[in-house]
């Protein structure tokens, strides 16, 4: 099982998918037929590539709650001492409802990077430019890793296909984080140029907070883009 190192460091993944999606995912997997805890965990991870590792205790406690709520029932033992579980009709209905309902985007997930940047921009003496670059580089490293894993995956197996879709989701998130960082950098540089223009006194030493080089001239020279 391949584990993905360093989820994009935006903090939004601490509780990936939340317990609800684990509960529903396990229930949905039982639609394929009765399974025991270790099997369920393996099937979950086959589809998500170990992106969100589950421990088997979590699987059994989830099964216990699903049983209490009448969504799964125990089916005895498979002959080798494994306690088997199957979905009840109420469980199957709950799965149908889960698939039919969009995932809520209620509150923005607590995004450590956005919070960090918002604070850094206002606290004096922080080299925001360096912070942005460091983050961009780290996120790019993660993106390179996802891409290498994707390049290796064989898409003719449905579980591998499922896992490359999870990888794609990570690729899109990392890519959008990099675009957002580019955007922040452009806006901060522009703000700095405007500030320098408003204080025409030659004593203005541009703070190094946004840009590593010394230039205060407009960044995007006309004709520079090709």
């Amino acid at each position: 099982m391949v584990c993905i190192p360093g989820m994009v460091a935006s903090g939004g993944h601490e509780n990936p998918g939340g317990p609800m999606s684990v509960r529903h995912s396990l229930l949905a997997l039982l639609e394929e037929g009765p399974m025991y805890g270790y099997q369920l965990r393996a099937e979950f991870e086959r589809r998500t590539g170990g992106t969100w590792p589950l421990n088997v205790g979590q699987v059994y406690s989830t099964l216990a709650r699903l049983e209490r709520d009448g969504l799964v029932e125990a089916r005895g033992d498979d002959g080798e001492g494994h306690r088997m579980y199957a979905a009840t009709p109420a469980g199957t209905a709950a799965v149908g409802e889960w698939f039919a309902t969009p995932v809520a985007r209620s509150q923005p997930a607590r995004d450590e990077l956005a919070i960090k940047l918002a604070v850094a921009v206002t606290v004096p003496g922080v080299d925001v430019g360096a912070m942005i670059q460091q983050q961009r580089s780290a996120t790019m490293t993660a993106l390179q890793e996802y891409t290498r894993l994707k390049a290796r995956a064989a898409v003719d197996d449905p579980a591998e296909l499922a896992w490359t879709l999870v990888l794609d989701s990570l690729v899109f998130a990392a890519e959008s984080e990099i675009r957002w960082l580019d955007h922040c950098e452009t806006r901060l540089r522009r703000a700095e140029i405007d500030r320098a223009r408003r204080t025409p006194s030659s004593s203005v030493e541009p703070s190094s907070s946004v840009e590593p080089s010394s230039s205060v001239e407009p960044v995007e020279t006309p004709g520079g883009a090709r």
């Binding site: 190192p5 670059q133 460091q134 961009r136 580089s137 780290a138 790019m140 490293t141 993106l143 390179q144 890793e145 996802y146 891409t147 290498r148 390049a151 690729v171 990392a174 890519e175 990099i178 675009r179 840009e211 590593p212 080089s213 230039s215 960044v219």
Partner: peptide
């Protein structure tokens, strides 16, 4: 495009004619 750059072994970041950083996979 970051997603295309991600196929590279190394990504070099240029700013105002200076290489400011490089990223490479682990």
């Amino acid at each position: 495009e970051a997603r295309h750059a991600a196929w590279a072994d190394r990504v070099v970041f240029l700013r105002d004619g200076v290489v400011v950083d490089e990223s490479s996979p682990l």
